[in-house]
Write a protein that binds this DNA or RNA. Structure first.
Lengths: 346, 346
DNA sequence: TTGAAAGCGATACCAT
DNA sequence: ATGGTATCGCTTTCAA
């Protein structure tokens, strides 16, 4: 889609001042296009006289010449572009930091990261759109890429396809981020604390299901086989009123603990519960996730599940390795570390 | 940089299975490349028989053919790519939401947003790297793009260059986001509350100066001419210990108010102050910024400066307009609305 | 040391 | 209704 041609060519208003090409530079410098290329790329296999170099550089400077990346990669037959589709929903600070780090690390390896904002095409369509760009590697967060998509990308020359999500995809390398582990830690912890009737907050905001569902499942897993334990789903919007409403009917729910998806929802709910007079942790234990700095500020301090994402460095190295040796069998790495940080709210 | 050629060509390990081209499709379907192009693009100016269409589509399907965006745009002479350099530091939720919205809105207009992760090249170098991609529009957050950079981009065919930052840049359209306004609102408010010795929190985290400095200046502006008022700069890292340390020497600072850069720093500091026994707002008023949901949860509730970013929709429309009519004189829009939301902490 | 020319992949004009 | 072919901008043999 990127380089897509508009149905109606943009109305050429006054006079589109032509973009200078290497031919223009050659003309102005009085040399051939080949020479321009040699000089501007410092081609070592060819020796060009200093005066000529000067003339070429001067001409390029004067015209404001900038090479045309598409033409260049077309000729070269490959690029150093690492494509990373933008996640569909604005994600949290954890992911942002990871992404910045990754960008930096790949930059060091002379790759360029392009975050591509495809408006939700469906499944294979999306992969095709990415494939049009002929990236050398594709890093796909979340679900939505199937084996078919992977095949499309590989046929289009992608040497590395890496998914970052809950499950492996045939043919692709996987950085497995099992969100269930997050819920499981919370569930185990609450169980150990003697809690049996556990609420699990599910954000009503669209797009978060991708994370919240597995976390819920993790709690269920932790409680598996305990006939005396029970999980209750609690939809909650990220607004004060929503939390207040939930808190108002809290006692009727008969819960003795709640795992709140993440620290933000946990803080929201915990405050509402306190305003309602619900004792924490005596009456109800509260556990969040993500270990945000702000969670430490509540009283009682918020217990949380600390999440360890892979370092951007690691992922960058994986990409580099796979690009250099595309034969590599798809690797699967468990990269989401989840660890409970007990504080005072549970 | 994107399509840049590696110095050492990647070792062609076993046998890079060639990527299918439209010529391959043509061969398999027993037609010419022209016909393939007509069919696959549904060219209306040309009538192709249904049987032929089928054969072509089938061949394309079988080969897993995906068009090559670079070749296409090379031929076309333009693209629908809107380039947006990634901001150097992970920015907050406000910006993330704005960006998602923008992406969506531009997608609706059939543009594709590419967030480009250039590792900090300096000034004009950066603009050159962007120009290599020949984007139809460039949206530049922050500072770092000068008039020279704008010229480079325009010479490279960018029909719209829009800066999102504190000041205009010669030749570019500007969405002026004057962070000083944020500080000014806070300063005025605290002044009106009778406060005179005002602390301003400056995050120690790198890269935030871009926002924090102007906000500080805004507070200064608000106090301008008031000989009895005074501003004190308070460096603070986003860690509990840092806040605790600052709180420990709070009384020695002799301040009666603090504007804390944003709500997160405000919450951090406020909690530390409360733990230190500092009365809020009696002894010290606290004002944050960004109007985060969580700020409402503190007791006392956090006063804040609500920030109104432009809608992605608006910016998308500006881009569209300017692309269609590149002659347009650079427009400047004040887009950062700042409004004080008094709650209980001030 | 430099230049002429082929070719990367796709499109659109001009013939047929 | 199709096919041949020039062309976009750049790199890179091969010749001179």
């Amino acid at each position: 889609m990127v380089q897509q041609i508009p149905k109606q060519p943009v109305p050429t208003s006054p006079a589109p001042p032509a973009v200078p090409t290497s031919a223009d530079v050659a003309r102005l410098a009085g040399v051939s296009r080949a020479t321009v290329s040699y000089v501007l790329n410092n081609t070592s296999a060819v020796r060009i006289s200093e005066p000529t170099r000067r003339r070429v550089r001067a001409a390029a400077e004067e015209l404001g010449y900038v090479p045309h990346a598409a033409a260049r990669s077309l000729r070269a037959g490959h690029s150093r572009m690492v494509l990373m589709p933008a996640p569909p929903v604005p994600v949290g600070p954890l992911y942002s930091r990871f992404f910045s780090e990754l960008q930096w690390a790949l930059g060091r390896l002379d790759y360029t990261v392009v975050q591509y904002g495809g408006v939700g095409l469906k499944g294979d369509e999306e992969a095709r759109a990415w494939a049009e760009l002929r990236p050398v590697a594709v890093l796909v967060p979340g679900t939505g890429l199937g084996p078919r998509g992977v095949a499309v990308l590989k046929r289009a020359g992608a040497r590395a396809v890496v998914t970052l999500g809950p499950e492996r995809v045939e043919g692709a390398h996987a950085l497995l981020m099992d969100q269930r582990g997050v819920g499981r830690r919370a569930g185990e912890h609450l169980l150990a604390r003697g809690r049996r009737r556990i609420g699990v907050v599910l954000p009503e905001e669209a797009g978060l299901d991708l994370f919240s569902r597995p976390r819920l499942q993790g709690v269920r897993d932790a409680l598996h086989g305990r006939a005396d334990a029970e999980v209750t789903e609690l939809p909650l919007a990220y607004r004060e009123e929503s939390a207040t409403a939930l808190a108002a009917r809290w006692r009727s729910l008969g819960l003795d603990a709640v795992f709140a998806y993440n620290d933000e929802y946990a803080m929201l709910l915990m405050r509402a519960l306190q305003d309602e007079g619900v004792g924490i942790p005596d009456e109800t234990s509260v556990v969040g996730a993500d270990d945000l700095v702000l969670g430490r500020l509540l009283r009682p301090r918020l217990s949380t599940v600390h999440i360890e994402l892979p370092s951007g460095q690691e992922l960058a190295e994986l990409v580099e390795r796979v690009v250099r040796e595309p034969g590599t069998a798809p690797e699967t790495h468990e990269v989401l570390g989840a660890r409970l940080v007990p504080r005072e709210s549970s």
